[in-house]
Design a protein around this nucleic acid. Structure first.
Length: 205
DNA sequence: GACAAGATTAGCT
DNA sequence: GCTAATCTTGTCT
């Protein structure tokens, strides 16, 4: 399979466009000779200039400075003492926008994902959450700042397979501020999307 | 140095 | 549906 990374140009656009267009693309993770692939089925946009839920909201800090860099790099953070979350940075240098990859659907290497993930009674539990997919794909802070426009340890590829994905938009999950913004994008009725009541509270499609 | 909060998950009721 | 687990980060002293 020939994976073609999305170009820098893709990432330099507005966060909402990037978040929506990342749906259906392939997240590729290389670990030595091993290549794992998963289709992105759920994303959330975080927009620093007006969004209090964004890690980039307010001043630039050691943690969020990567988000203010150029788009097309990874932002990986550690949360709740246990978990990693994987984001892609969008926009030009100086813009504090990032897209959280909330869920993916395994495509290649699912047997390795089961191994890396450990707990998971069903296949959809491998990757139906931002930290679950990091466990399955062995994503940790060593990938913070990784260049997503090159065929490196992690990147997002075009998906040449033709398929129809009906994309739904809802409010975001798991935040206490900025809850009013409909910045979550997901494939309607896809089994690998996070289970949440917002799946039925669709703002528009 | 201390302290509180957090873009989650798993396990129990 | 509810909550403990667990530690990095940012902010304040």
């Amino acid at each position: 399979m020939n994976f073609i990374p999305l170009t820098e140009r893709f990432y330099l656009r507005g966060a909402l466009v990037v978040a929506r267009e990342l749906i259906g693309k392939l997240l590729v993770r290389k670990i030595g000779k091993l290549t794992l692939t998963a289709k992105i089925v759920e994303t959330e946009a975080y927009i620093g200039d007006h969004d209090p839920a964004a890690h980039s909201y307010g001043r630039i800090t050691e943690r969020n400075k990567i988000i203010y860099g150029i788009g097309g790099v990874a932002y990986v953070y550690f949360i709740y003492g246990n978990y990693y979350c994987f984001n892609v940075v969008s926009g030009r240098k100086g813009v504090g926008n990032a897209i959280l990859i909330r869920a993916v659907e395994p495509v290649i290497g699912i047997e390795y994902m089961r191994k890396f993930r450990g707990k998971a009674k069903n296949d959809y539990e491998l990757t139906n959450g931002p930290s679950k997919l990091c466990m399955s794909l062995k994503i940790d802070k060593s990938l913070n700042g990784a260049d997503l426009t090159k065929r490196g340890a992690v990147f997002v590829s075009r998906n040449t397979k033709k398929e129809f994905n009906e994309i739904a938009v809802s409010k975001r999950i798991g935040i206490n501020v900025g809850t009013e913004f409909p910045y979550r994008f997901f494939i309607k009725d896809n089994a690998f999307v996070t289970k949440h009541r917002f799946n039925k509270e669709i703002v528009f499609t």
